[in-house]
């Protein structure tokens, strides 16, 4: 007698868990699919804005303007499989900037971004970060304007110096106090991207 009801209880437990899970996961899947295209579009706009920023092209936040300027000024150079190798951008002063994708291992996770190089493929036109999950208030400060802007015009094998130094040397940049690992990661990922740039871009950039 007791055995039967125990089996019944177990069955109910399993069924209940299954039904409730299916119900909630079902709602989630629906919402996810419903918003998928919006999310994809947001991502695409975000990336485009980042590429433009890296090449020092000013745009507002308006999606229409971003799309328009991007279409005019950016050419996506792809490889045989359709993956973007780099972006060839016509900067505000008419010169060409090659924007490369860059990534490195930070403290908490992967850091992704863009590194833009002038036509000599050595001088940095600008950098930007697209993905980072570093410590807010510390490592995450790499997304602050002052940190990114300081890279414009830098050249050579980059070296970190303490925050606040504002060195005149073209290969030194201010790290972030208290965010050693993140600063190190940024240093090595930019250096790596610059080093690999000629190989990725082929024999120089179109004039």
């Amino acid at each position: 007698m007791a055995k039967v009801s125990k089996a019944k209880q177990r069955l109910f437990t399993v069924l209940f868990m299954f039904t409730v899970s299916a119900f909630f996961i079902g709602i989630l899947s629906f919402v996810y699919l419903f918003t998928k295209s919006t999310v994809v579009r947001n991502e695409s706009l975000f990336l485009k804005k980042s590429v433009l920023y890296t090449a020092q092209i000013k745009v507002s936040d308006s999606p229409v303007e971003i799309e328009k300027v991007y279409k005019e000024k950016v050419e996506e150079i792809k490889d045989a499989d359709g993956n973007i190798q780099y972006y060839s951008v016509v900067a505000d002063n008419g010169a060409t900037v090659a924007v490369f994708q860059s990534s490195g291992q930070g403290l908490w996770g992967v850091i992704k971004g863009h590194v833009g190089l002038k036509s000599d493929l050595e001088t940095i036109a600008g950098i930007d970060f697209t993905v980072q999950t570093e410590t807010p208030g510390l490592g995450a400060r790499i997304t602050e304007q002052w940190f990114k802007e300081q890279f414009r015009g830098k050249k050579g094998e980059l070296k970190r110096v303490p925050e606040g130094t504002k060195s005149g040397n073209e290969n030194e940049f201010d790290a972030i106090t208290g965010a050693t690992v993140t600063s190190k990661a940024v240093e090595s990922m930019i250096n790596k991207t610059v080093k690999n740039a000629p190989a990725v871009a082929g024999k120089g950039v179109k004039q």
């Binding site: 490195g104 291992q105 050693t180 690992v181 190190k184 990661a185 090595s188």
Partner: peptide, 8 residues
């Protein structure tokens, strides 16, 4: 201990 292990 920070920086002891370079995971890069």
């Amino acid at each position: 201990f920070t920086g002891m292990m370079n995971l890069n």
